[in-house]
Design a protein around this nucleic acid. Sequence first.
DNA 1: TCGTCTTACGAGAAGCGTAAGAATT
DNA 2: AATTCTTACGCTTCTCGTAAGACGA
Lengths: 283, 283
Amino acid sequence: MDPHLLRTFVTVARTGSFSTAAQRLGYTQSAVSQQIAALESDLGLPLLHRRPVTPTEAGARLLDHAEPLLLRLRAARADVLRTAAMPAHRLTLAATPLALNPRLAHRLARARAAQPRLQITIRTCARDEVMRQVAVGEATIGLADGIAAPNDPLPPHDAAPLTTTGLCQEDLVVALPPDHPLAGRPGLRLADLVDARWLQTTLCPVRRLRHLAGDGFPVALDYTGDDVHTVLNLVAAGHGLTLLPASVGRGVPLSHPRLVHRVELLHATLPDGPAARLAADLS
Amino acid sequence: MDPHLLRTFVTVARTGSFSTAAQRLGYTQSAVSQQIAALESDLGLPLLHRRPVTPTEAGARLLDHAEPLLLRLRAARADVLRTAAMPAHRLTLAATPLALNPRLAHRLARARAAQPRLQITIRTCARDEVMRQVAVGEATIGLADGIAAPNDPLPPHDAAPLTTTGLCQEDLVVALPPDHPLAGRPGLRLADLVDARWLQTTLCPVRRLRHLAGDGFPVALDYTGDDVHTVLNLVAAGHGLTLLPASVGRGVPLSHPRLVHRVELLHATLPDGPAARLAADLS
DNA sequence: TCGTCTTACGAGAAGCGTAAGAATT
DNA sequence: AATTCTTACGCTTCTCGTAAGACGA
């Protein structure tokens, strides 16, 4: 179960070809063939069907494990190397699109004022990608948002053990098209909306709603981008409903169940220095 | 970052000696020395101080990552091999001491009656150990108990991705010595007891109480065993308080916050067979 | 017959053990 | 001086690439 073998196995399984995997990894087809053979003989099981190249049942199981494992390995390496990195005067902050809300943007400005020489690069990406980048050191600090019950943490990602700190919470509103029959209400219960059509977005994943409020919530449209204005436009055009933090969109307050939009700070164990200070200033 | 190197690193760091680690692992001291040197040169950092042998800061960080990583590797291997294991007519169930309560014992009996030829071995151990055994295949199925808010899952362990299913919940009581001033109350709030002295046990870890109900809960005595009767005796003798499921001990019902004793079923993806059927019968 | 995976074989590298050397207590 | 880690060196094993072979489409 050498990580190298695991990596080539993953590549072969995903590309469905020994040869393209080989050239992507800088090996010969032969080497890849031998590596897969080594893995299979180590486990005593075939992992791939050939022609076409497809994971066997055992291979599928291994595939589920291999990627998180490789990610954790990289995270471990990054974490160790971080201890030696000199306190940098520049750092990268990865954030989900809704994480850097007005309040946090303000806090960030104050924190930067306290460390004027600190160069910050901000990058927006999806939640999983934020976690991954922080874990493997591509970003120093992460901000991730999500929907949760008040004071509950967001669901953890198992990429690597990261320190997470709740930064702020704010009310949620149901974003509705202006001519929607419920648009005039003072407040809405989620239960009133289980049969409405919902937008599946990275900002408000319907899966999460189901987890928090039970089944239902049929998906009308799946939007995989991460642009808030686009989502607002889709809602206004009547493609479906979504939940947004009150500061972002006009909408009807969500009265029950009590759910909040929560932003969390993510980072690995930071050595003393500007990054640690920034993290402290944000929380 | 070869797992072999990681394993010897962990062993050296834990034993504090190259030589004893070597003989524990079946290597020469020389080999161990070379392995550590290889790891250090790969990362470009010293990981251990010598004489005495002690992790450096970077080494400590690596140590944090290495053990979960190795565990996941073993779990991955076990999971793959499980797909090939023929449906066995004997399996091992690992359970925490309070998990196999009357209701579940009953369900287990019914499930066994449905599969009379199935041989079951039951083993009791601590929660982390249950998870570990299920992950690496030393146990087929696990039962773990803990304290949680109603319908909330227990905190996950990141050894490996395991399927967890809530099996049952029951009320909690505060176990008090009979002559305790609060013993006559019809119900107790946890807030009334933040300043009482608590037993720290594996059955009711005080850390968990603090997480669920805020700070406080000073620890009077730490009991590392897992025997329920011993804990009851300690409570009766006035060493401290603890929470127990209502079916186990007499005590004052916990009225607020509403917390329950929850039992969860743990297993990896089970191939069709007696084990999968048992898991289904239990839930 | 072409594309693709497997096998055979040789060259190079890596890993371990023996044994001698250095450093600390 | 004794213990413990490091280094030198040779041997074995592993791994990769080249090249030829097998198997399907």
